Simulated assay, not measured.
Amino acid sequence: MLTIRKFYALALLAVSFSQSVLADSAPNPASFATFRKQFKTQVSYEGDDRRPVGNSPGSLFKAVRYPSEVGTLAAMLTLDPKDGKKHPAIIWITGGDSNSIDGTTLSRGMPRSNDQSALAYQKAGIVMMFPTLRGGNDNPGKHEAHFGEIDDVLAAADYLAQQPWVDPARIYLGGHSTGGTLVLMTAEVSKRFRAVFSFGPVANLRSYGKLMPVNFDKMNYADQIARAPYYWLPSVQSPLFIIEGVSGNIDSLELMRSKSTNPHIQFLSVKGASHFTILAPGNDLIARKILLDDGAVCNIKLIENEMINELSKK
């Protein structure tokens, strides 16, 4: 969790794989939720980080546990400000081992050039929840390579909506890298979130190589297609922003852009930014937009030039 990984030269195999998913036997790409309900994955593995989440210095967050289909899972959650108000909230999924988090590291923040903490939201007064997922930290279950983990993210949203200081109509979802891919896939399953912000995802989980210890060549067809998020882009039914720096993992973004006609999805390729430097300016900008997004429906709009301007700020 929060380990810097060089994703710039990921070997995308999604293009060749797309030839098979367009076969007559492929499921309807507009129904990822239905596909998942009818399919049980055969993929699972033990995670490397089985330590407890740890503490949040200065009580920035509190450790909680939320219910899921595999048992109670750990999370870090913003403290109740006790001001009697309902606040907007965001669930953030970290990169690297997205199933595990380090509560101590998250609370410290990071350099602006690589701020994977996403603390811009907490600093803006937005409630933050960092959920752990099945098989991560000291949780029950096993990793499923972004399959069952989607259900855990949705369970975290249900828990967050029940907190007295959270506005259940203004819950957002964001994530970076592997976390960005998971939130993208969650947006393909559910319109539960007011908007979703996916930083640096991949078009096909094959691209992660050894980062996910599974053998795609030996996977059955359904397990492979369940982990090809570019295929399920037609399923998205609520605002989704896919964001990456031009010098980052941009090939995946452009592949998905070329295949999508979904009006709910916006792709932002940001000049002058990388897979990591896009995070601080991007989250600063989004946090401000969330505070202004208080109408009946989401009114957030992002443009690439806004993020380019944010890059120049210290």
Score class of each variant (00 low, 15 high):
139 N>L: 09
73 L>F: 02
105 T>G: 10
108 R>V: 11
134 R>E: 04
110 M>F: 14
133 L>T: 01
93 I>C: 04
82 K>I: 10
94 T>A: 13
118 A>K: 07
128 M>F: 01
147 F>W: 12
112 R>Q: 10
111 P>F: 00
73 L>H: 02
120 A>I: 07
119 L>G: 10
108 R>F: 14
127 V>T: 15
133 L>V: 00
145 A>Q: 05
114 N>R: 15
102 D>Y: 06
136 G>M: 01
139 N>I: 06
86 K>P: 08
77 L>E: 05
81 P>S: 13
88 P>F: 07
103 G>P: 05
147 F>R: 04
148 G>Y: 00
125 G>H: 13
124 A>L: 06
95 G>H: 01
106 L>V: 09
109 G>I: 11
103 G>Q: 07
140 P>N: 05
128 M>Q: 14
92 W>E: 11
78 T>S: 15
119 L>Q: 12
105 T>N: 10
138 D>V: 12
99 N>Q: 13
120 A>F: 09
104 T>Q: 12
110 M>T: 08
133 L>M: 06
80 D>C: 10
73 L>P: 03
130 F>R: 11
144 E>V: 01
92 W>V: 14
102 D>K: 11
90 I>W: 02
125 G>C: 11
138 D>G: 08
74 A>M: 06
79 L>T: 13
97 D>H: 05
87 H>N: 14
121 Y>W: 12
89 A>N: 07
123 K>P: 01
95 G>A: 03
147 F>G: 00
92 W>Y: 15
96 G>V: 02
77 L>K: 07
134 R>S: 11
144 E>N: 05
74 A>H: 06
126 I>F: 03
138 D>L: 04
105 T>V: 15
76 M>Q: 14
79 L>H: 15
114 N>P: 00
79 L>I: 08
109 G>P: 10
105 T>L: 15
114 N>Y: 11
97 D>E: 12
135 G>K: 00
106 L>H: 03
146 H>T: 05
74 A>E: 15
147 F>K: 02
115 D>R: 13
88 P>E: 06
147 F>C: 01
126 I>C: 08
90 I>E: 02
76 M>N: 08
128 M>E: 12
87 H>E: 12
81 P>G: 13
117 S>I: 11
124 A>Y: 08
83 D>S: 12
128 M>A: 09
127 V>P: 09
146 H>P: 00
107 S>E: 05
142 K>H: 07
129 M>Q: 07
105 T>C: 09
140 P>Q: 02
77 L>C: 06
86 K>N: 11
102 D>V: 06
111 P>V: 09
101 I>M: 10
108 R>P: 01
113 S>F: 11
78 T>A: 10
86 K>R: 15
131 P>E: 09
101 I>C: 06
